[in-house]
Design a protein around this nucleic acid. Structure first.
Lengths: 181, 181
DNA sequence: CGTAATGGGTCAGCATCGTTGACGCTTTTC
DNA sequence: GAAAAGCGTCAACGATGCTGACCCATTACG
Protein backbone atom coordinates (compact mmCIF):
# COMPACT_ATOMS: atom_id res chain seq x y z
CA UNK A 1 0.00 0.00 0.00
CA UNK A 2 1.75 3.08 -1.16
CA UNK A 3 0.57 6.62 -1.03
CA UNK A 4 -2.16 6.75 1.53
CA UNK A 5 -4.50 9.65 1.06
CA UNK A 6 -3.50 12.83 2.80
CA UNK A 7 -6.35 14.66 4.43
CA UNK A 8 -3.99 17.38 5.54
CA UNK A 9 -3.32 18.23 1.95
CA UNK A 10 -6.93 18.92 1.25
CA UNK A 11 -7.36 20.86 4.48
CA UNK A 12 -4.40 22.97 3.51
CA UNK A 13 -6.12 23.73 0.26
CA UNK A 14 -9.24 24.97 1.98
CA UNK A 15 -11.76 22.13 2.08
CA UNK A 16 -13.59 20.59 5.00
CA UNK A 17 -11.14 19.40 7.65
CA UNK A 18 -12.12 16.38 9.73
CA UNK A 19 -15.33 14.39 9.99
CA UNK A 20 -16.02 13.43 6.42
CA UNK A 21 -12.77 11.69 5.75
CA UNK A 22 -14.59 8.74 4.31
CA UNK A 23 -15.88 10.86 1.52
CA UNK A 24 -12.48 12.32 0.96
CA UNK A 25 -10.95 8.92 0.79
CA UNK A 26 -13.27 7.97 -2.00
CA UNK A 27 -12.68 11.23 -3.75
CA UNK A 28 -8.94 10.73 -3.63
CA UNK A 29 -9.34 7.15 -4.75
CA UNK A 30 -11.18 8.24 -7.84
CA UNK A 31 -8.81 11.07 -8.59
CA UNK A 32 -6.07 8.50 -8.50
CA UNK A 33 -7.98 6.28 -10.87
CA UNK A 34 -8.24 9.15 -13.33
CA UNK A 35 -4.53 9.78 -13.10
CA UNK A 36 -3.64 6.13 -13.48
CA UNK A 37 -5.80 5.73 -16.53
CA UNK A 38 -4.39 8.82 -18.16
CA UNK A 39 -0.74 8.05 -17.54
CA UNK A 40 -1.07 4.32 -17.92
CA UNK A 41 -2.91 4.39 -21.21
CA UNK A 42 -0.60 7.01 -22.60
CA UNK A 43 2.51 5.03 -21.83
CA UNK A 44 0.90 1.79 -22.94
CA UNK A 45 0.43 3.22 -26.42
CA UNK A 46 3.63 5.25 -26.55
CA UNK A 47 5.89 2.46 -27.78
CA UNK A 48 3.69 1.41 -30.65
CA UNK A 49 3.02 5.04 -31.56
CA UNK A 50 6.73 5.58 -32.08
CA UNK A 51 7.00 2.67 -34.50
CA UNK A 52 3.90 3.79 -36.36
CA UNK A 53 5.20 7.32 -36.69
CA UNK A 54 8.26 6.03 -38.54
CA UNK A 55 5.94 4.51 -41.10
CA UNK A 56 3.74 7.57 -41.39
CA UNK A 57 0.90 5.84 -39.62
CA UNK A 58 -1.05 6.50 -36.47
CA UNK A 59 -2.87 4.72 -33.73
CA UNK A 60 -5.91 4.20 -35.92
CA UNK A 61 -3.87 2.07 -38.30
CA UNK A 62 -2.73 -0.04 -35.40
CA UNK A 63 -6.29 -0.63 -34.26
CA UNK A 64 -7.23 -1.92 -37.67
CA UNK A 65 -4.21 -4.20 -37.83
CA UNK A 66 -4.91 -5.44 -34.33
CA UNK A 67 -8.56 -6.29 -34.78
CA UNK A 68 -8.16 -7.67 -38.28
CA UNK A 69 -5.35 -9.80 -36.96
CA UNK A 70 -7.53 -10.94 -34.11
CA UNK A 71 -10.41 -11.86 -36.41
CA UNK A 72 -9.17 -12.73 -39.87
CA UNK A 73 -12.03 -12.54 -42.34
CA UNK A 74 -13.83 -9.87 -40.36
CA UNK A 75 -16.22 -7.75 -42.38
CA UNK A 76 -15.98 -4.01 -42.68
CA UNK A 77 -19.26 -3.66 -40.82
CA UNK A 78 -18.08 -5.74 -37.89
CA UNK A 79 -14.89 -3.74 -37.70
CA UNK A 80 -16.89 -0.53 -37.67
CA UNK A 81 -18.93 -1.91 -34.81
CA UNK A 82 -15.85 -2.70 -32.77
CA UNK A 83 -14.09 0.58 -33.39
CA UNK A 84 -17.28 2.60 -33.08
CA UNK A 85 -16.23 5.12 -35.70
CA UNK A 86 -17.78 6.15 -38.98
CA UNK A 87 -17.28 4.46 -42.30
CA UNK A 88 -15.46 7.52 -43.57
CA UNK A 89 -13.02 7.57 -40.69
CA UNK A 90 -12.27 3.92 -41.17
CA UNK A 91 -11.93 4.36 -44.89
CA UNK A 92 -9.19 6.91 -44.57
CA UNK A 93 -7.12 4.40 -42.64
CA UNK A 94 -8.19 1.15 -44.23
CA UNK A 95 -7.81 2.17 -47.87
CA UNK A 96 -4.12 3.05 -47.52
CA UNK A 97 -3.52 -0.16 -45.57
CA UNK A 98 -5.00 -2.13 -48.44
CA UNK A 99 -3.21 -0.07 -51.09
CA UNK A 100 0.14 -0.53 -49.38
CA UNK A 101 -0.34 -4.25 -49.02
CA UNK A 102 -0.92 -4.65 -45.29
CA UNK A 103 -4.50 -5.83 -45.53
CA UNK A 104 -6.37 -7.87 -48.11
CA UNK A 105 -10.00 -7.59 -49.08
CA UNK A 106 -11.75 -10.70 -50.20
CA UNK A 107 -15.28 -10.80 -51.52
CA UNK A 108 -17.60 -12.66 -49.15
CA UNK A 109 -18.62 -16.09 -50.32
CA UNK A 110 -22.09 -16.25 -48.83
CA UNK A 111 -22.71 -12.53 -49.30
CA UNK A 112 -20.78 -11.02 -52.14
CA UNK A 113 -21.40 -7.48 -50.90
CA UNK A 114 -19.11 -8.06 -47.97
CA UNK A 115 -15.39 -7.43 -47.98
CA UNK A 116 -13.63 -9.87 -45.72
CA UNK A 117 -10.48 -8.37 -44.28
CA UNK A 118 -7.31 -10.23 -43.45
CA UNK A 119 -3.68 -9.36 -42.87
CA UNK A 120 -1.11 -10.01 -45.55
CA UNK A 121 2.24 -11.40 -44.39
CA UNK A 122 3.50 -7.83 -44.49
CA UNK A 123 0.58 -6.70 -42.36
CA UNK A 124 1.01 -9.56 -39.94
CA UNK A 125 4.69 -8.73 -39.59
CA UNK A 126 3.97 -5.11 -38.73
CA UNK A 127 1.21 -6.08 -36.35
CA UNK A 128 3.57 -8.43 -34.59
CA UNK A 129 6.20 -5.78 -34.32
CA UNK A 130 3.70 -3.47 -32.66
CA UNK A 131 2.42 -6.28 -30.51
CA UNK A 132 5.90 -7.17 -29.33
CA UNK A 133 6.55 -3.61 -28.32
CA UNK A 134 3.40 -3.41 -26.25
CA UNK A 135 4.09 -6.84 -24.93
CA UNK A 136 7.24 -5.59 -23.26
CA UNK A 137 5.32 -2.85 -21.50
CA UNK A 138 2.46 -5.05 -20.42
CA UNK A 139 4.58 -8.01 -19.37
CA UNK A 140 6.76 -5.76 -17.26
CA UNK A 141 3.68 -4.36 -15.57
CA UNK A 142 2.22 -7.83 -15.07
CA UNK A 143 5.42 -9.21 -13.60
CA UNK A 144 5.82 -6.25 -11.33
CA UNK A 145 2.24 -6.42 -10.13
CA UNK A 146 1.84 -10.17 -9.78
CA UNK A 147 -0.79 -12.59 -11.09
CA UNK A 148 -3.44 -11.69 -8.58
CA UNK A 149 -3.15 -8.03 -9.48
CA UNK A 150 -3.50 -8.95 -13.13
CA UNK A 151 -6.80 -10.63 -12.45
CA UNK A 152 -7.96 -7.54 -10.58
CA UNK A 153 -6.83 -5.31 -13.39
CA UNK A 154 -8.87 -7.33 -15.84
CA UNK A 155 -11.95 -7.20 -13.69
CA UNK A 156 -11.81 -3.45 -13.28
CA UNK A 157 -11.11 -2.76 -16.93
CA UNK A 158 -14.00 -4.97 -17.91
CA UNK A 159 -16.16 -3.07 -15.46
CA UNK A 160 -15.28 0.22 -17.11
CA UNK A 161 -16.65 -1.05 -20.39
CA UNK A 162 -20.19 -0.34 -21.47
CA UNK A 163 -22.68 -2.78 -22.89
CA UNK A 164 -21.52 -2.51 -26.47
CA UNK A 165 -17.86 -2.90 -25.65
CA UNK A 166 -18.54 -5.95 -23.52
CA UNK A 167 -20.48 -7.52 -26.35
CA UNK A 168 -17.71 -6.71 -28.80
CA UNK A 169 -15.11 -8.17 -26.48
CA UNK A 170 -17.17 -11.31 -25.97
CA UNK A 171 -17.33 -11.72 -29.72
CA UNK A 172 -13.59 -11.26 -29.99
CA UNK A 173 -12.90 -13.83 -27.33
CA UNK A 174 -15.38 -16.33 -28.71
CA UNK A 175 -14.19 -19.25 -30.72
CA UNK A 176 -15.01 -19.14 -34.38
CA UNK A 177 -18.50 -20.30 -35.04
CA UNK A 178 -19.55 -19.87 -31.45
CA UNK A 179 -22.68 -17.80 -31.27
CA UNK A 180 -22.62 -14.69 -29.12
CA UNK A 181 -25.95 -12.89 -29.08
CA UNK B 1 -6.03 -18.71 -44.78
CA UNK B 2 -9.53 -18.24 -43.45
CA UNK B 3 -11.17 -19.14 -40.17
CA UNK B 4 -8.20 -20.39 -38.25
CA UNK B 5 -9.10 -22.32 -35.16
CA UNK B 6 -8.30 -20.47 -31.97
CA UNK B 7 -6.89 -22.84 -29.41
CA UNK B 8 -5.64 -19.96 -27.36
CA UNK B 9 -9.16 -18.74 -26.69
CA UNK B 10 -10.09 -22.11 -25.33
CA UNK B 11 -7.04 -22.32 -23.15
CA UNK B 12 -7.51 -18.83 -21.82
CA UNK B 13 -10.93 -19.75 -20.57
CA UNK B 14 -9.79 -22.58 -18.37
CA UNK B 15 -9.50 -25.69 -20.47
CA UNK B 16 -6.42 -27.75 -19.64
CA UNK B 17 -3.46 -26.21 -21.46
CA UNK B 18 -1.93 -29.00 -23.45
CA UNK B 19 1.82 -29.15 -23.85
CA UNK B 20 3.30 -25.89 -25.10
CA UNK B 21 0.13 -23.91 -24.81
CA UNK B 22 1.89 -21.78 -22.28
CA UNK B 23 3.16 -19.60 -25.05
CA UNK B 24 -0.29 -19.31 -26.54
CA UNK B 25 -1.69 -18.51 -23.18
CA UNK B 26 0.65 -15.59 -22.82
CA UNK B 27 -0.13 -14.37 -26.27
CA UNK B 28 -3.83 -14.47 -25.66
CA UNK B 29 -3.35 -12.83 -22.28
CA UNK B 30 -1.65 -9.90 -23.88
CA UNK B 31 -4.11 -9.64 -26.71
CA UNK B 32 -6.79 -9.45 -24.07
CA UNK B 33 -4.90 -6.72 -22.25
CA UNK B 34 -4.78 -4.69 -25.45
CA UNK B 35 -8.50 -5.10 -25.95
CA UNK B 36 -9.31 -4.25 -22.36
CA UNK B 37 -7.23 -1.10 -22.43
CA UNK B 38 -8.75 0.03 -25.69
CA UNK B 39 -12.38 -0.56 -24.76
CA UNK B 40 -11.97 0.34 -21.12
CA UNK B 41 -10.22 3.63 -21.70
CA UNK B 42 -12.64 4.59 -24.42
CA UNK B 43 -15.67 4.03 -22.26
CA UNK B 44 -14.01 5.61 -19.26
CA UNK B 45 -13.69 8.88 -21.16
CA UNK B 46 -16.94 8.64 -23.08
CA UNK B 47 -19.15 10.19 -20.43
CA UNK B 48 -17.01 13.24 -19.87
CA UNK B 49 -16.46 13.63 -23.60
CA UNK B 50 -20.20 13.99 -24.11
CA UNK B 51 -20.45 16.80 -21.54
CA UNK B 52 -17.44 18.54 -23.01
CA UNK B 53 -18.84 18.34 -26.52
CA UNK B 54 -21.91 20.27 -25.41
CA UNK B 55 -19.62 23.08 -24.31
CA UNK B 56 -17.53 23.01 -27.45
CA UNK B 57 -14.59 21.56 -25.57
CA UNK B 58 -12.56 18.40 -25.86
CA UNK B 59 -10.61 15.98 -23.77
CA UNK B 60 -7.62 18.28 -23.64
CA UNK B 61 -9.69 20.88 -21.80
CA UNK B 62 -10.69 18.27 -19.28
CA UNK B 63 -7.11 17.33 -18.63
CA UNK B 64 -6.21 20.89 -17.85
CA UNK B 65 -9.19 21.30 -15.53
CA UNK B 66 -8.35 18.02 -13.85
CA UNK B 67 -4.70 18.67 -13.17
CA UNK B 68 -5.14 22.31 -12.28
CA UNK B 69 -7.87 21.24 -9.89
CA UNK B 70 -5.58 18.64 -8.43
CA UNK B 71 -2.72 21.10 -7.93
CA UNK B 72 -4.04 24.62 -7.53
CA UNK B 73 -1.26 27.11 -8.12
CA UNK B 74 0.52 24.81 -10.55
CA UNK B 75 2.81 26.56 -13.00
CA UNK B 76 2.47 26.33 -16.76
CA UNK B 77 5.77 24.51 -16.93
CA UNK B 78 4.73 21.87 -14.44
CA UNK B 79 1.48 21.35 -16.31
CA UNK B 80 3.40 20.92 -19.53
CA UNK B 81 5.56 18.32 -17.82
CA UNK B 82 2.55 16.35 -16.67
CA UNK B 83 0.68 16.46 -19.94
CA UNK B 84 3.83 15.94 -22.00
CA UNK B 85 2.63 18.13 -24.84
CA UNK B 86 4.06 21.26 -26.38
CA UNK B 87 3.55 24.75 -25.13
CA UNK B 88 1.60 25.57 -28.28
CA UNK B 89 -0.79 22.66 -27.84
CA UNK B 90 -1.43 23.63 -24.26
CA UNK B 91 -1.88 27.25 -25.22
CA UNK B 92 -4.67 26.53 -27.61
CA UNK B 93 -6.62 24.92 -24.80
CA UNK B 94 -5.52 26.99 -21.82
CA UNK B 95 -6.01 30.44 -23.33
CA UNK B 96 -9.71 29.89 -24.04
CA UNK B 97 -10.18 28.39 -20.58
CA UNK B 98 -8.72 31.54 -19.07
CA UNK B 99 -10.64 33.84 -21.40
CA UNK B 100 -13.92 32.14 -20.62
CA UNK B 101 -13.34 32.30 -16.90
CA UNK B 102 -12.65 28.66 -16.02
CA UNK B 103 -9.03 29.15 -14.99
CA UNK B 104 -7.18 32.04 -13.36
CA UNK B 105 -3.60 33.02 -13.91
CA UNK B 106 -1.77 34.59 -11.02
CA UNK B 107 1.73 35.95 -11.22
CA UNK B 108 4.13 33.92 -9.13
CA UNK B 109 5.17 35.56 -5.88
CA UNK B 110 8.68 34.17 -5.59
CA UNK B 111 9.22 34.13 -9.35
CA UNK B 112 7.20 36.70 -11.22
CA UNK B 113 7.80 34.98 -14.55
CA UNK B 114 5.59 32.13 -13.52
CA UNK B 115 1.85 31.99 -14.06
CA UNK B 116 0.20 30.08 -11.26
CA UNK B 117 -2.97 28.41 -12.49
CA UNK B 118 -6.09 27.77 -10.42
CA UNK B 119 -9.71 26.99 -11.11
CA UNK B 120 -12.33 29.68 -10.76
CA UNK B 121 -15.62 28.65 -9.11
CA UNK B 122 -16.96 28.23 -12.63
CA UNK B 123 -14.03 26.04 -13.54
CA UNK B 124 -14.31 24.01 -10.36
CA UNK B 125 -18.00 23.47 -11.04
CA UNK B 126 -17.35 22.13 -14.51
CA UNK B 127 -14.50 19.99 -13.31
CA UNK B 128 -16.75 18.52 -10.66
CA UNK B 129 -19.44 17.80 -13.19
CA UNK B 130 -16.95 15.90 -15.32
CA UNK B 131 -15.54 14.20 -12.26
CA UNK B 132 -18.96 13.07 -11.13
CA UNK B 133 -19.66 11.58 -14.49
CA UNK B 134 -16.47 9.56 -14.49
CA UNK B 135 -17.04 8.73 -10.86
CA UNK B 136 -20.16 6.82 -11.81
CA UNK B 137 -18.28 4.75 -14.32
CA UNK B 138 -15.32 4.05 -12.07
CA UNK B 139 -17.33 3.38 -8.93
CA UNK B 140 -19.50 0.93 -10.81
CA UNK B 141 -16.42 -0.89 -12.04
CA UNK B 142 -14.85 -0.85 -8.58
CA UNK B 143 -17.98 -2.19 -6.92
CA UNK B 144 -18.38 -4.86 -9.52
CA UNK B 145 -14.77 -5.93 -9.27
CA UNK B 146 -14.27 -5.74 -5.53
CA UNK B 147 -11.62 -4.04 -3.40
CA UNK B 148 -8.91 -6.57 -4.02
CA UNK B 149 -9.32 -6.21 -7.75
CA UNK B 150 -9.06 -2.46 -7.36
CA UNK B 151 -5.70 -2.81 -5.69
CA UNK B 152 -4.56 -5.05 -8.50
CA UNK B 153 -5.82 -2.64 -11.09
CA UNK B 154 -3.80 0.13 -9.48
CA UNK B 155 -0.67 -1.94 -9.42
CA UNK B 156 -0.90 -2.89 -13.06
CA UNK B 157 -1.73 0.60 -14.24
CA UNK B 158 1.20 1.95 -12.28
CA UNK B 159 3.36 -0.68 -13.88
CA UNK B 160 2.37 0.46 -17.34
CA UNK B 161 3.67 3.91 -16.58
CA UNK B 162 7.16 4.97 -17.53
CA UNK B 163 9.66 6.80 -15.39
CA UNK B 164 8.39 10.27 -16.14
CA UNK B 165 4.79 9.41 -15.52
CA UNK B 166 5.62 7.76 -12.22
CA UNK B 167 7.50 10.82 -11.12
CA UNK B 168 4.64 13.06 -12.18
CA UNK B 169 2.16 10.92 -10.34
CA UNK B 170 4.30 10.90 -7.22
CA UNK B 171 4.36 14.67 -7.33
CA UNK B 172 0.61 14.78 -7.72
CA UNK B 173 0.07 12.50 -4.79
CA UNK B 174 2.58 14.26 -2.58
CA UNK B 175 1.44 16.58 0.16
CA UNK B 176 1.89 20.25 -0.52
CA UNK B 177 5.39 21.29 0.31
CA UNK B 178 6.66 17.74 0.35
CA UNK B 179 9.73 17.44 -1.81
CA UNK B 180 9.70 14.81 -4.54
CA UNK B 181 12.95 14.68 -6.49
C1' DC C 1 -39.51 -9.45 -61.43
C1' DG C 2 -38.85 -5.10 -59.79
C1' DT C 3 -38.03 -2.20 -55.94
C1' DA C 4 -36.19 -1.38 -51.47
C1' DA C 5 -32.69 -2.26 -48.24
C1' DT C 6 -27.99 -3.46 -47.10
C1' DG C 7 -22.81 -3.47 -47.37
C1' DG C 8 -19.38 -0.80 -48.88
C1' DG C 9 -16.78 3.24 -51.02
C1' DT C 10 -15.91 8.12 -51.72
C1' DC C 11 -16.01 13.30 -52.11
C1' DA C 12 -16.24 17.67 -49.56
C1' DG C 13 -15.93 20.23 -45.51
C1' DC C 14 -15.17 20.87 -40.59
C1' DA C 15 -13.20 20.39 -35.57
C1' DT C 16 -9.89 18.73 -32.09
C1' DC C 17 -5.49 17.91 -30.72
C1' DG C 18 -1.06 16.96 -31.48
C1' DT C 19 3.50 18.54 -34.01
C1' DT C 20 7.76 21.90 -35.59
C1' DG C 21 9.82 26.31 -36.22
C1' DA C 22 10.40 30.94 -35.16
C1' DC C 23 9.94 35.12 -32.62
C1' DG C 24 9.00 38.38 -28.74
C1' DC C 25 8.42 39.76 -23.96
C1' DT C 26 9.39 39.75 -19.07
C1' DT C 27 12.05 38.32 -15.38
C1' DT C 28 15.74 35.97 -13.11
C1' DT C 29 20.47 34.41 -12.86
C1' DC C 30 25.27 34.79 -13.34
C1' DG D 1 24.93 43.78 -18.78
C1' DA D 2 24.33 39.45 -21.14
C1' DA D 3 22.53 34.85 -20.97
C1' DA D 4 18.93 31.90 -19.68
C1' DA D 5 14.36 30.72 -18.16
C1' DG D 6 9.21 31.02 -18.22
C1' DC D 7 5.55 32.17 -20.96
C1' DG D 8 2.75 33.63 -25.09
C1' DT D 9 1.80 33.50 -29.95
C1' DC D 10 1.84 33.34 -35.22
C1' DA D 11 2.02 30.05 -39.05
C1' DA D 12 1.73 25.72 -41.13
C1' DC D 13 1.06 20.83 -41.08
C1' DG D 14 -0.74 15.99 -39.98
C1' DA D 15 -3.70 12.37 -37.79
C1' DT D 16 -8.19 11.26 -36.36
C1' DG D 17 -12.63 12.03 -35.51
C1' DC D 18 -17.39 14.06 -37.39
C1' DT D 19 -21.64 15.18 -40.78
C1' DG D 20 -23.90 15.19 -45.21
C1' DA D 21 -24.45 13.60 -49.68
C1' DC D 22 -23.95 10.44 -53.31
C1' DC D 23 -22.81 6.16 -55.91
C1' DC D 24 -22.37 1.14 -56.89
C1' DA D 25 -23.17 -3.80 -56.32
C1' DT D 26 -25.75 -7.15 -54.24
C1' DT D 27 -29.37 -9.16 -51.57
C1' DA D 28 -34.04 -9.41 -49.69
C1' DC D 29 -38.74 -9.09 -50.29
C1' DG D 30 -43.43 -8.14 -51.82
Amino acid sequence: MTALPKPEAEAARGAAPAGRNLLFLREEELRLAQDLLFFGYRDFTAGADAILAELGMGRAHHRVLHFVGRRPGITVGELLGILAITKQSLGRVLTPLVDEGYVTQETGRSDRRQRLLSLTPKGAALERRLYDRQRETVMAAYREAGPQAVEGFRRVMRGLMGRDARAALARLEAKDGEAVP
